[in-house]
Write a protein that binds this DNA or RNA. Sequence first.
DNA 1: TATTTATGTTGACACTGTAAACATTTAGTA
DNA 2: TACTAAATGTTTACAGTGTCAACATAAATA
Lengths: 211, 211
Amino acid sequence: MKYHHGNLRSELIRCACTLCEEHGHDKISLRGIAKEANVSQTAPYRHFETKESLLAAVAAHGFVEMQKSIDKIIDLSKTNKISKKTLIDAMLAYLDFAISNNNIYEVMFGTVIKDFRNFPDLHNAALEAYSSLKLSIKRYIKLKNDQEYDEKCVKIWAFLHGLVGLNKIEQKLEDVPTTDGSYDMPIDALRAAKNNLVPFMNSSIDALIKS
Amino acid sequence: MKYHHGNLRSELIRCACTLCEEHGHDKISLRGIAKEANVSQTAPYRHFETKESLLAAVAAHGFVEMQKSIDKIIDLSKTNKISKKTLIDAMLAYLDFAISNNNIYEVMFGTVIKDFRNFPDLHNAALEAYSSLKLSIKRYIKLKNDQEYDEKCVKIWAFLHGLVGLNKIEQKLEDVPTTDGSYDMPIDALRAAKNNLVPFMNSSIDALIKS
DNA sequence: TATTTATGTTGACACTGTAAACATTTAGTA
DNA sequence: TACTAAATGTTTACAGTGTCAACATAAATA
């Protein structure tokens, strides 16, 4: 066991990602992450000023990975138009990343990191990810100007981001017997959407782009 | 100063709401809330099993208030159809509540409370709020069946919830000069949407309902 | 080789959520 | 009304947290 780790910074990020995804950002401690990396409690402070800044690195990594999974679908090596199916696939890739990396997504978009401007890498990664989202729309449909692309992109992004949020809600609500009818069932509705995700997305995304 | 407070439970919820909205749920402590209510550190434990359960009460209160602000728009005393403007106003009421009670909204929809089933009042309030959202759509347009209402409602809810999320993001991103063009500007797009919120909502909600 | 810098450890501090033991007030019953 | 049980408050204590200061060692540089 050598005194200097050699790769501690990236190892800490890796451990933080793992633990965060497993337990949620609010259930993990800097000490726990340090232990996972087999270093002393305060070793992380040689690489990260605060816990927040380590989580910022986790978030940045998340944005990069999310962007990759979108880019893979729309095939960055080309510049031609993409089909509607490909567009939807890209949106599904967003959802898929968000849901299978739920706790990291929370760090990316939640209140843990108060201001991205304090973390240039994160700020960068977030803007880049938005770029890919916008690019997928650009490659799908011809619009008047950049502003119009931004408007559609924000609408679609909001919709996707909202679906991710509702997916979390679903897991917190109960299966209430639907007999009495005094309550409506958002859960059933959410599950129905998930069980028919492709047509659900097809109609919604199309409507938003043309709105 | 009497030994028994008399109204400590509701007073704690009130203090928690205030402090939470001011500093965010992750920056407030049970001890701080107790101090705000002028009781000892552990007094809250006579009314709430854990910090989570106090925050659950905060969230429940939030759902009730949010529902009220929607109900006020669609006027529960009547049952007739509502205009498109009224529908949009109801959606704007949702956004308005979410944004002016940002930190409480975070408690309502974030990961703080893991399972609503542990907090019947909260579970109740959340379902009730969904009811009002759905009702506003029911009063706006005639659809085939309840399932169809649920589908539209989920779409619109996702969209609204997503917009709230993006509004948070906007505050974290930088004003980057748009000259070089190497990045796209989600911030500008988000601000543009906010500056023209009514037409933005009009087109989006309409598109989603008809999708 | 000598010295500065980077990177690690140990120990300490104030703060957190929460449990246990104890005190006081209120409610309920004889 | 007197006595007891329950509800509601306080004090004390504990383990876990983020972070700082002081110290130790390895690596880089002169």
